[in-house]
């Protein structure tokens, strides 16, 4: 029997490595780092049971700042590397730390396939809508018209909605948070951590140097309440400083309405995280500023068997049927003959 003395209580400090955090002053990454450390401390996860796997980009320096196991891998490949870690030791808690370029551009393929397999990875995408480590080029989440070093006349590309992409691959847990709301961020990360299967959390994050205030419409005290829709399971979708606006479905499309002018709460969409169909979540994932408020919270949370559970079930079933592997038997299978 283990006692409390064997397992001293872990605090946020225990998850910090001895390395100096080298993000720029004011970077939104700091609050995400703290939130993940708090999420681990809150759940008392032993440090040796955690592996943080990242790709390339500012956010991907993350593993160096954690006193856990970690791999700072190559650009875009973190979900694949993490898949190997998880299949080697499914009991580990494996976090994938990635950015908008890393996950959605160079690593799009791995992002998609990790999700469709529903492998037990916690994927946290730090979305600052810019390539920051390479000093300011357009990213796949940059808005159309965005002027950057690589798009001096404005970007002509359509941005990708990461949660919509994840839903396309049938993600079982998808959520969005923002760096300046640490309480909500931590709550969402905890739910992601406890989810079986792939959990995806997009975190809007401010790049203080190359895309400062890209999310000011969500952080500015004057505007944020009119621009954020907090998703709450089972609750009608109401938002606004005065809680007087809502989202309703007209035909196949969502629409912003003002309550009171012939529209009541019961006309509004009610959020359902556990809906089997991803359609509602997809509608929400496509709602973007300035036409719509930005949904924050859990878009989808459903249960499906995880890849690792099914893999080890197959191994277990095969071993039960054939017995544990015996090299002599293996070598001598098929047609054999003896030379005297």
């Amino acid at each position: 029997m283990t006692t409390m003395a064997d397992h001293p209580v872990l605090t946020i400090k225990d998850y910090k490595s001895d390395q100096d955090v080298r993000w720029c002053p004011g970077c939104g990454d700091f609050s995400i780092l703290t939130a993940i450390q708090k999420c681990l401390a809150a759940r008392q996860v032993p440090k040796e049971k955690v592996v943080c796997v990242s790709g390339i980009g500012c956010s991907s320096r993350f593993p160096y700042y954690m006193d856990t196991y970690g791999i700072h891998s190559i650009h875009g490949r973190a979900p694949a590397v993490a898949t190997g870690v998880k299949l080697a030791k499914p009991e580990l808690e494996v976090w994938v730390i990635t950015g908008d370029g890393d996950a959605l551009s160079i690593g799009g393929n791995h992002f998609l396939h990790a999700i469709r397999r529903n492998i037990g990875l916690k994927i946290v995408l730090f979305n600052n809508r810019i390539y920051a480590l390479t000093k300011g080029q357009v990213s796949p989440t940059s808005e159309q018209g965005k002027r950057t070093k690589s798009t001096p006349y404005g970007s002509i590309e359509n941005p990708v909605h990461s949660i919509a992409v994840a839903l396309g691959a049938e993600i079982t847990f998808a959520a969005r948070a923002i760096y300046n709301d640490p309480k909500m961020l931590q709550e969402i990360l905890e739910r992601a951590a406890n989810h079986k299967g792939t959990a995806f959390v997009e975190v809007y994050q401010d790049c203080a140097v190359y895309n400062h205030e890209a999310f000011s419409y969500l952080t500015d005290r004057q505007t944020r309440d009119d621009n954020i829709l907090y998703l709450e399971h089972g609750k009608p979708m109401i938002f606004g400083k005065n809680r007087d606006k809502g989202i309703r479905l007209v035909g196949m499309d969502t629409q912003v309405v003002t309550l009171g002018q012939g529209v009541s709460e019961k006309d509004l969409l009610v959020h359902d995280e556990h809906c089997e169909s991803p359609t509602l979540a997809f509608q929400l994932a496509r709602m973007a500023y300035p036409r719509f408020p930005t949904p924050l919270g859990v878009f989808r949370d459903i249960e499906k068997p995880s890849y690792e559970a099914m893999l080890f079930d197959q191994i277990k079933a095969t071993t039960a049927k054939l017995g544990p592997g015996d090299l002599n038997k293996l070598f001598a299978s098929g047609d054999t003959w003896v030379v005297e």
């Binding site: 891998s73 898949t83 080697a88 071993t319």
Partner: peptide, 29 residues
């Protein structure tokens, strides 16, 4: 050969195949 605790993974591409192998090696396979 699953009863030898062989874990095979058909990856989404060549890059992922090796990346996963490297992750598995880090974790002791």
């Amino acid at each position: 050969y699953k009863n030898f605790d062989v874990r095979t993974f058909q990856a989404e591409d060549e890059i992922a195949a090796y990346a996963a192998v490297l992750g598995a090696a880090y974790a002791g396979c």
